[in-house]
């Protein structure tokens, strides 16, 4: 039976894992390579690294992080942030990543999805999508970009279907409304998109406790759940989350 995946997200800035804290800006919370190795030992199924480095001169630091991670962990991982063309994609894949995530750049230039899929295979191309509830949109959700700061004219459901038809192999769906609340994933949009597309959907935003993962992986119909602060400093280990999910009948890979 196909297992539900637990994916940990690490935001990386200038080669350090970082976390945005309200009113304080970004705080470094560790070395991404060491953290990746620790989560690998705990039994995480996949990792996502978002490069939030501001300046393009420092892109090389991220490639170095990717190479060092690939030497230590033998599970798939995805890299996103700052990828704007197929040359960027190639350098990340050659460094050892399995997948590339594109978000705002795909909104600005949807052809990047089909170009990436035809060159590297659709399984490599992950569409990252930030959605916010908006009654003016047909599905009730609007796509937002630049970390939620910029609204687009795109309907979330339509965009998910279009990205799939262009060749995206997976969607990471982040609810801007739930993100950072630790009160649970946005089940409604997760279920709507997961049922509409024929590719896996990873739920993101809002995880605060194990019950939230259970809910999104069952009622929310997600194929995988992304977590960050819960494991970075919420006192949870991957093993503890998975033991809970297993006891609730959710199929997860146990070490």
């Amino acid at each position: 039976m196909l297992q539900k995946r637990i994916i940990i997200c690490l935001d990386v800035r200038d080669g350090k894992t970082t976390k945005g804290i309200k009113f304080k800006g970004n705080v470094d919370i560790g070395d991404p390579v060491e953290m990746a190795a620790e989560y690998y030992r705990q039994g995480v199924d996949e990792l996502v690294f978002y490069d939030i480095t501001a300046s393009s001169e420092k892109r090389g630091i991220m490639i170095d992080v990717v190479s060092r991670v690939a030497e230590q962990i033998f599970i798939p991982f995805c890299v996103g942030g700052g990828i704007s063309n197929v040359a960027d994609m190639r350098s990340v894949l050659l460094a050892g990543a399995e997948k590339i995530s594109i978000n705002s750049q795909a909104v600005k230039n949807p052809d990047i999805i089909s170009e990436g899929a035809s060159l590297f295979g659709r399984q490599c191309i992950v569409l990252g999508m930030d959605a916010a509830a908006d009654r003016a949109m047909p599905s009730g959700y609007r796509v937002v970009i630049n970390g939620g700061r910029t609204a687009t004219g795109l309907d979330a459901l339509e965009w998910a279907l279009k990205a799939e038809s262009l060749g995206a192999g997976e969607i990471v769906l982040n609810s801007i409304d739930a993100d950072g609340t630790r009160e649970g994933y946005e089940l409604n949009i997760t279920r709507m998109i997961s049922e509409a597309v024929g590719i896996p959907v990873v739920a993101s935003g809002g995880a605060g406790k194990s019950e939230h993962l259970r809910d999104v992986l069952t009622d929310g119909k997600a194929d995988a759940a992304l977590v960050a602060s819960m494991v970075h400093f919420g006192g949870y280990t991957v093993g503890a989350i998975k033991e809970y999910l297993c006891s609730e009948g959710v199929p997860v890979r146990m070490l």
Binding site: Q3, R5, R122, G169
Partner: peptide
């Protein structure tokens, strides 16, 4: 089914 079959399976 979702295709590709992607993820951990027994």
């Amino acid at each position: 089914l979702k295709v590709p079959h992607m993820g951990w399976n027994q």
